[in-house]
């Protein structure tokens, strides 16, 4: 009886989860197995999408030049963006922990999280613009020559990745800041009594005890990078020459530009599989 009552309370949430998450996910998987003509062809769409230069450009990859395909671009994004934002967030959280006005500085850094991705994309576009961008003013000051960094295939993706660091660092900063507050002061005091220096305390106490937070930061950052759309769309629309095309933008392209919802579903399924493959083991390890 009690189980039934509990189940009754959970039922509305379950219904919503089923209607807005499970059912669409199942439909997406089903869609990916059919051709636009309605013919059941479980592998055809997957083979076509994975052999499309837009998704995986082996020639570009082997020569080390952009575009390399949205799958590779997304991977590059994660590999560069994740460590920078996580490390920056951690370092800033530690540095601002006991600083007067630290909360205010954290709020400013966190503003990047509040700004819509599309606005962030526009801001970054202008940051790297040849005449108006602050980046070029620094480059010229250092003796370099100015150019619109997002306009060139070899620098466009990296510009977007570095430009997005300020948008996402606030997330890891806030998590690490709250995580630092949960570490008992006694640990730090004991370490100091034992003669440990600041670096040793950071490496032996702070970092290990923040591991659960790090797992969340890593998983969320990967998911954020995988579903990145608005920021790239506003900054470069995936160009020039698809050099900044990422997976979520690829879904949009296939569905709304090419009009092939089945192929779009394939990329969505791949995106889901990658997200789950990364996040499930990490969240399990957290337990």
């Amino acid at each position: 009886m009690q189980t039934l009552r509990r189940f009754t309370f959970v039922l509305p949430t379950l219904a919503l989860v089923f209607a807005f998450a499970v059912y669409p996910a199942l439909q997406t998987i089903r869609l990916s197995l059919f051709l636009p003509t309605g013919e059941f062809a479980p592998l055809a769409n997957y083979a076509e999408v994975l052999s499309d230069r837009r998704v995986l450009n082996l020639a570009g990859l082997s020569q080390g030049r952009f575009p390399m395909g949205s799958l590779v671009h997304t991977f590059i994004w994660i590999v560069i963006h994740l460590p920078i934002t996580a490390l920056l967030g951690l370092v800033l959280a530690v540095l601002l922990q006991n600083v007067r006005g630290g909360g205010f500085i954290k709020s400013i850094i966190f503003m990047g999280m509040v700004i819509p991705g599309a606005v962030g994309g526009l801001v970054v576009r202008f940051l790297f613009e040849r005449d108006l961008g602050i980046v070029n003013q620094l480059v010229v000051l250092l003796g370099g020559s100015a150019r619109t960094w997002t306009a060139y295939p070899d620098t466009a993706l990296l510009s977007l990745i570095f430009g997005s660091v300020w948008l996402w660092t606030g997330f890891s900063l806030v998590l690490y800041s709250s995580g630092l507050g949960t570490i008992p002061r006694d640990y730090f005091d004991a370490a100091k009594v034992d003669g440990a220096n600041e670096l040793q305390i950071f490496g032996r106490i702070t970092v290990p005890l923040l591991r659960p937070i790090t797992v969340v930061v890593v998983v969320m950052s990967i998911i954020w990078a995988l579903k990145l759309f608005d920021y790239v769309y506003a900054a470069t629309m995936g160009g020039p020459g698809r050099a900044t095309q990422v997976l979520a933008l690829e879904i949009w392209h296939l569905a709304f530009v090419r009009g092939n919802f089945n192929q779009a579903a394939v990329v969505a399924v791949l995106l889901g599989v990658i997200s789950l493959t990364v996040s499930i083991p990490m969240l399990r390890r957290r337990r």
Binding site: A151, Y152, G238, G239, P240, G241, R242, H253, V257
Partner: peptide, 21 residues
């Protein structure tokens, strides 16, 4: 129109900065 439009506009942005492509 359609995909051709999006591709042409995108690819010409590439050509303008990387004529070797």
């Amino acid at each position: 129109g359609g995909e051709f439009r999006e591709t042409l506009l995108d690819q010409l942005q590439l050509l303008w900065v990387a004529p070797d492509a």
